[in-house]
Amino acid sequence: MHYMLTMLETAAAMSERDHPEKAEGYWGGWMAYAEAVRFSGVMVSGNGLQPPATATTLRIRNGQRHVEDGPFAETKEMIGGYFIIDVPDLDAALAWAARAPAALNGAVEIRPVLPPPPPAAA
């Protein structure tokens, strides 16, 4: 099954990305994790994301475009990136989630990816 692991980071953790002393540790942790996912053969895809301040949210209501600065929801933990992995079951996905740096102070949401739609049915 394909699962998306959404990495929810705290503002403090995310600020380490360009912190003079802490950046190395931050990136080191994520690089090691990404390598482990890749080498184990479960990696489908994944990316880190720029901080929520760079987000723009769009809604169409009554035919009108509403564009807002910022993420769709202001929360204490924010999406820092995601991995899509291919593993047999939820327990295996949980094991990978538990290794992610975000699990230590943020959170990891584990969700099965919707299976592809059927080929045009008769």
């Binding site: 099954m1 699962y3 047999p88 079951d89 939820l90 327990d91 996905a93 969700r111 099965p112």
Partner: peptide
């Protein structure tokens, strides 16, 4: 849907 395993092991 979440792929919770049905197993005795683990």
């Amino acid at each position: 849907d979440a792929g919770i395993p049905f197993s005795e092991s683990a």
